[in-house]
Design a protein around this nucleic acid. Structure first.
Length: 267
DNA sequence: AGTACCACCTGACGGC
DNA sequence: TGCCGTCAGGTGGTAC
């Protein structure tokens, strides 16, 4: 799940449930997700501390501790948080569990183990190290336009490039291009000024709407407005906006979807 | 600076 | 029921 809208909602979830609470201890369910740190050191660093503020950049979530340090999360292709009290509610793929003095727990779920948890001393420096561009919800249109300029590949690939703008992945790039009526393979250099304006607006609308509709929860598809591709991302599905049929395509090993009549190829 | 392809993992699904 | 190939919303390395 975790593209920008999902991670934003995870950030809010953590913020609403797990801040300002003294940490009693940490349980590492799988050391594989630890990023350059031993489980013992992570536990020592967190024990007795509390989490105070949150910050997100692209698909990365950073949580500042009361000693000023930062705990960093990346979800990979699967994952979310779960705040719970009874250990019987501990999710199956809990890879890192933070236990609070109040008897509650925060689980970092990460089924496929492609996520990462780490420590950082400075959030800005951490963002720089990841080679990320501006957050996709922070970027203004002029900057977006400037960062697209001179790129050689297709527009979907560009949108998913985290160093151009951070936070957009396979699913939401499809959605933005669908709503903008732009074919995913369109070379960036063939986009007209008006196309980029349309795409920029679609990018913002898609991200903001997905957040508002609860991206990261299982019933997102039911809550989205009509006319979204996301619930119809399936080969042969009816296009939510016309009489067309959704087609699948492949680029860079990823499968994407489009409506050939809403998103005609450019000449 | 692009692309394709593989790898990292677990698990769900369809075909047989 | 079970085995097998394929695929999944991310990213990084390699080779071209």
């Amino acid at each position: 799940m975790p593209e920008l809208p999902d991670v934003e909602n995870y950030r809010r979830y953590l913020g609403a449930n797990a801040l300002h609470k003294s940490i009693a201890g940490v349980h590492v369910g799988s050391a594989r997700i630890l990023r350059g740190i031993a489980g013992k050191r992570l536990a020592d660093t967190l024990s007795g501390r509390s989490m105070e503020t949150t910050r997100r950049h692209g698909k990365h979530l950073m949580v500042q501790l009361d000693d000023g340090g930062w705990l960093t999360f990346h979800f990979g292709m699967t994952g979310r948080f779960r705040y719970f009290k009874q250990m019987e509610d501990d999710p199956k793929h809990d890879r890192l569990r933070i236990d609070f003095d109040n008897g509650y727990h925060l689980a970092f779920e990460n089924q496929r183990l492609l996520g990462e948890v780490g420590l950082a001393t400075d959030a800005d420096a951490f963002v720089d190290e990841q080679d990320m561009g501006p957050d996709a919800l922070d970027i203004d249109e002029a900057t977006f336009r400037k960062r697209l300029a001179g790129r050689r590949g297709g527009v979907k690939t560009a949108l998913m490039n985290q160093s151009l703008a951070a936070g957009i992945g396979n699913v939401y790039s499809d959605e933005m291009l669908f709503q903008a009526g732009i074919h995913p393979a369109t070379p960036v250099k063939r986009l007209k000024d008006a196309d980029i304006a349309t795409l920029y607006r679609a990018m913002r609308t898609v991200l903001e709407t997905a957040i508002d509709c609860g991206a990261g929860s299982d019933d997102l598809a039911q809550r989205l407005p009509r006319g979204w591709l996301l619930p119809r991302r399936d080969e042969g599905a009816p296009c939510p906006r016309c009489d067309g049929t959704i087609e699948a395509f492949r680029t860079g090993g990823r499968r994407g979807f489009l409506c050939p009549s809403c998103q005609p190829k450019r000449k």
